[in-house]
């Protein structure tokens, strides 16, 4: 009998701790499928962040390091420089990558560190209970913006993909979403390219994945997918922001 669905080998056979409806599970799976398809599990080293994905080291079957908050790109740099033959990826949330770890993000991109960064943007701090993130939208209500994010007080959300695409260093920067089958397939293709670029020694790649947080958004899983589509995608347009294989910058979808 033909197997039509199975757990990727790179994904460990343990239950996720993620909330019901959270899309971290999908993104983990996409990363694991790509590792399987590229046949690189044996030489891959992942770096887990601080935040909801802090236990990512339990979920992938490859070697893993757990980094301090925001420091995953620095840790990944150390691993890659020590053993350049390893394939090194980080898996980071928006607080980790775009607030406390902004310097590490920008400089690993500027150096074109030959690593792959998976950036999960759900516009909120999940693990700590729903505080405002650097990517929270204007007007978004969170525990620390209870009256909605106001630009006078809290400034504007950061568009990481656009910002990093102004640098010469990165080889590939793409923003995807996991709200629909079409978008999930596109997301997997982007993640695969981001790993392939590292294998091909093309330098820094980042895939930003718009993700949901039903628990802290106070929505059902289905409503959360709608909220992502209706509010996040308009502010964070999907598409390829940088691809050194194609001349020019953003070529969009």
């Amino acid at each position: 009998m033909e197997t039509v669905f199975k757990k990727p080998h790179a994904l460990a056979d343990v239950p996720f701790h993620y909330c019901p409806g959270c899309t971290h599970g999908i993104i983990h799976r996409l990363v694991a499928e790509v590792i399987d398809e590229l046949g690189i599990e044996g030489k891959t080293v992942g770096v887990a962040p601080v935040g909801c994905a802090v236990f990512a080291y339990n979920y992938f079957n490859c070697d893993m390091q757990e980094a301090a908050h925001g420091r995953a790109p620095a840790v990944a740099t150390g691993i890659k420089r020590a053993n350049p033959e390893n394939i090194v990826f980080t898996y980071q949330g928006d607080g980790d990558l775009a607030a406390i770890g902004t310097a590490e993000t920008v400089h690993s991109a500027a150096r074109s560190e030959n690593i792959t960064v998976i950036f999960v943007n759900n516009a909120i701090y999940g693990m700590t209970g729903g505080q405002m993130a650097p990517t929270s939208l204007v007007g978004q209500v969170t525990q620390t913006s209870p009256y909605g994010r106001k630009v006078e007080a809290q400034g504007y959300p950061i568009r990481i993909s656009e910002m990093l695409s102004t640098l010469e260093g990165p080889s590939f920067i793409s923003r995807c979403a996991v709200d629909s089958v079409k978008h999930i397939n596109e997301c997997k293709a982007a993640i695969k390219k981001a790993f392939q670029n590292q294998i091909d020694k093309k330098g820094f790649s980042l895939v930003e994945v718009l993700s949901t947080c039903p628990t802290n958004w106070g929505l059902s899983p289905v409503e959360a997918l709608d909220w992502l589509r209706d509010n996040m995608i308009p502010h964070y347009p999907l598409g390829v922001y940088k691809d050194i294989d194609k001349e020019g910058g953003k070529d969009g979808e």
Binding site: V75, G78, A82, H107
Partner: peptide, 13 residues
């Protein structure tokens, strides 16, 4: 901060 975390990564490697 980045330097010591690079040390962490390389030491772990």
């Amino acid at each position: 901060v980045a330097a010591i975390n690079m040390v962490y990564g390389a030491a772990g490697a």
